[in-house]
Structures are given as structure tokens and as C-alpha cells.
Computed example of a mutant assay.
Amino acid sequence: MILKFDYDGLWKLLIDKKMKKKDLTVKLGISPTTISKMVKGEPVSLTVLGKIATELESDIGEIVCLDNED
């Protein structure tokens, strides 16, 4: 079983805050490769998720969840 992650909460938060994915890479020093992984539903480190959650004033659970569609 391969775990897939759903970052739809993150994309919605970015829209609400009028931010783009590139804004995260610049503000937080996250690589474009990390953003690409998130777009593909791949795992990223908890450190990255923590930085994003802090920047967006949210909780990690609001930005990512497991995608259980199999």
C-alpha cells in the first residue's frame, strides 16, 4: 500500500490568504521540489509542514490529510 497525502486544505488556505505556491518558497525557504511533491500528493517532512502551518496561522491537520481513495 502506498500512502498518498491530500494537501487540498493548504491550497484553499493559500487562496484565502491571497498567496501563491511561489510565495511559500520565497517566504519560508522551501524548495520548488518540495511544493512539487505536495502537488503530487507525496509526503514532505513535518518540519516543512510546521513552517507552513505557522506562516498560515493554522494547524498541520488543516493543510494535509491522508488520501484514503484506493
Rank of each mutant, 00 (worst) to 15 (best):
M1W: 04
M1Q: 10
L3N: 11
L3T: 11
L3K: 14
F5M: 12
F5K: 06
F5E: 09
F5R: 03
D6F: 03
D6M: 04
D6I: 05
D8R: 13
D8I: 06
G9H: 03
G9M: 02
L10R: 01
L13C: 04
I15A: 12
D16Y: 06
D16Q: 14
K18F: 02
M19R: 06
M19G: 00
K20S: 15
K20M: 11
K20A: 11
K21A: 13
K21R: 14
K22C: 05
K22N: 11
L24A: 01
L24W: 00
T25C: 14
V26L: 12
V26H: 11
K27N: 14
K27P: 02
L28F: 04
L28K: 08
G29M: 01
G29R: 02
G29Y: 00
I30S: 05
I30Y: 02
I30L: 15
S31C: 07
S31N: 11
P32G: 09
T33H: 10
T33Y: 11
I35P: 04
I35R: 06
I35K: 05
S36T: 13
S36C: 08
K37M: 07
K37S: 13
K37Q: 11
M38K: 03
V39P: 01
K40M: 14
E42F: 10
P43F: 02
P43W: 00
P43T: 03
V44Q: 03
V44A: 05
V44D: 03
V44I: 15
S45D: 14
S45A: 12
S45E: 06
T47E: 15
V48S: 12
V48C: 12
L49W: 00
L49A: 00
I52M: 09
I52Q: 00
I52A: 02
A53P: 11
T54P: 00
T54F: 08
T54N: 13
E55F: 14
L56M: 09
L56Q: 04
L56S: 08
L56Y: 00
L56C: 08
E57C: 06
S58I: 09
D59E: 15
D59Q: 14
I60L: 10
G61H: 08
G61A: 10
I63W: 00
V64C: 12
D67F: 07
D67S: 10
N68L: 15
E69I: 09
E69V: 09
E69F: 03
E69M: 06
D70N: 11
D70C: 06
D70Y: 10
